[in-house]
């Protein structure tokens, strides 16, 4: 009697675990199917399109042409050799350079400014709640709206920023910030830094709040210079949080589209990889060519993330410490 009872107990214990795993599979299935449909399949299809000569009007009629969209050699009838494809397209490399320049400058500025804002918010002072609410406003405003708002403020004729700079004597004549090739990138950077510094500040603040307060008090009693405290104690302690924040921002910056599309339309000085890919995909009739460019963008991002995680020893899983 007792023996069979424990046997049954053990059996049902096993089946309970199996039952849970089976239930887990059912619970995961819809999410995995959805992700397959909106992520895996479209990505593979984009890569496939990049190896064909598909056009926008005839999506299923493309022929397989290997890597011709990326690179091909053409021998003309007079014997001259021409190179074609994205990899020898100066417009593409211009876009790559723009994207890299934009991403590095914006992320560096946002990290430094974000840290400063976070340090301010980490101090105790009257009205701290109000300041924290205020910095959330740029974050909450839709990118398109902020692009339009800044386009208006940067307007060459009636813009308030030209007016301010003129009154302060910073510039001698009105500048067409968004239209001028020399200043277009500065305009884009300005808006992006304004919009995303709050995000960085909040992530940095979360990191700062995990640093125990008594460390600062001990340093204060020992009479150590606050600047030294920051670089020797605070920065190393919040480094893991900072590394994760930087990679998320970097990925966002590398795929930037909407701000540039609205603020500086058709400006070669700011065109990024995403902008040029979409232009070829949808607006010009070069669907396969655009697919090749978006595939390259994906490859560049994937390599960058892998290197960053590997070299920076970033723990993204959140399970490392547990």
């Amino acid at each position: 009697m007792t023996v069979s009872k424990t046997a049954i107990g053990r059996e049902s214990g096993l089946s309970l675990r199996q039952q849970r795993i089976r239930a887990a599979q059912w619970f995961l299935a819809p999410m995995l199917i959805a992700l397959f449909c909106v992520a895996a399949y479209p990505l593979l299809k984009t890569i496939w399109f990049s190896l064909t000569d598909t056009s926008l009007n005839n999506l299923s009629g493309g022929k397989f042409i290997w890597f011709d969209n990326y690179f091909r050699m053409q021998t003309l009838s007079n014997g001259a050799v021409r190179y074609k494809g994205t990899l020898v397209d100066p417009a593409w490399w211009n876009a790559v350079w723009n994207t890299v320049r934009f991403s590095v400058v914006s992320v560096v500025c946002e990290t430094v400014l974000g840290l400063i804002v976070a340090l301010v918010l980490n101090a105790e002072f009257k009205g701290r709640g109000f300041v924290r609410a205020a910095i959330l406003i740029p974050w909450a405003i839709p990118t398109i709206v902020s692009a339009k708002m800044w386009a208006w403020m940067l307007n060459d004729q009636y813009g308030i920023l030209n007016d301010m700079a003129l009154n302060l004597g910073l510039i001698s004549s009105k500048i067409a910030w968004t239209a001028n090739a020399d200043t277009a990138m500065y305009a884009v950077l300005m808006v992006d830094i304004w919009k995303t510094t709050p995000f960085m500040a909040l992530l940095c603040l979360a990191g700062l709040q995990m640093v125990p307060r008594d460390i600062y008090e001990a340093a204060k009693i020992d009479g150590i210079n606050p600047v030294k405290v920051f670089f020797k104690i605070t920065l190393p302690l919040i480094r893991p949080a900072l590394m994760v924040a930087v990679i998320f921002r970097m990925l966002d910056a590398l795929r930037i589209f909407d701000l540039i599309y609205v603020l500086t339309p058709n400006s070669a000085a700011t065109k990024t990889m995403s902008v040029i890919s979409r232009e070829n995909l949808i607006e010009f009739d070069k669907f396969a060519y655009g697919s090749a460019q978006s595939t390259l963008l994906f490859a560049i991002l994937a390599i960058f993330v892998s290197l960053y995680i590997w070299l920076g020893k970033v723990d993204l899983s959140g399970e490392g410490g547990k």
Partner: peptide, 17 residues
């Protein structure tokens, strides 16, 4: 990894779908 996907990389495939 999917949350890090650049949207433009799936645009062509999604357009077809």
């Amino acid at each position: 990894a999917v949350s890090m996907f650049p949207q433009i990389a799936v645009l062509a495939g999604l357009f077809e779908l």
